[in-house]
Amino acid sequence: MATPTTLDKLEADSTTSHLITVTFRVRRFNPEVAAEASWQDFQLEIDPKERVLDGLHKIKWDQDGSLTFRRSCAHGICGSDAMRINGKNRLACKTLIKDLNPSKPITVEPIKGLTVLKDLVVDMDPFFQAYRDVMPFLITKGNEPTRERLQTAEDRERFDDTTKCILCAACTSSCPVFWNDGQYFGPAAIVNAHRFIFDSRDEAGEQRLEILNDKDGVWRCRTTFNCTDACPRGIEVTKAIQEVKRALITRRY
């Protein structure tokens, strides 16, 4: 078994500490303290292989306990910590310091388009409301089979990409249409509609398409691809939206 060089380097690096000093420029807001949001700089020592989330924890645990953000899993699967990092929507736990040009201050702000409640915490209720509005659950007719419903591997593959969504809101809150009009369903809700519209077992595709045919539905999408860039799960969000649009025109899915 060959031991290639990236692995050698990783292992060799681990014996020495490579702490660097970085500045986190964080957008702070706490209506209990001040009516306006403001920027605050924190300096911290961190290994560039660590995550932005580790940096936020260092601030919270060693410098300022009042810094507030959501997080849980710390490896990109729970969707708690979408934020704007250096102007782009990402998960703090999936963004490594070294990938951010740490010689300059790293800016961290709440995602846009949802009301900020405190520091990096936003009100997620409108986001989940849009999700609920597309009827995000399997709808079938007739009697239930005794065993599992059958589905070919190809039919299963058809909607694989959109089953990966973790509802972090990185896509929806990167969408300029959503920033201007909070009524727009937004990419995440459409992704979750797609997940069912293209599931061969589901029988409510028509209903979901009608919901998305609404004035606040898919037609608002201007194909800016922000959402696809923002998705931490690598879902081709814009493509999914296009497929829903096409299904609306052809009524085939």
Partner: peptide
């Protein structure tokens, strides 16, 4: 328990026969 989840919509990987 597995069949319940499948009926609720869980997208399990499939065999060539289309079963779980």
């Amino acid at each position: 328990a597995v069949l319940d989840l499948e009926k609720m919509g869980l997208p399990f990987n499939r065999t060539p026969d289309g079963t779980i």
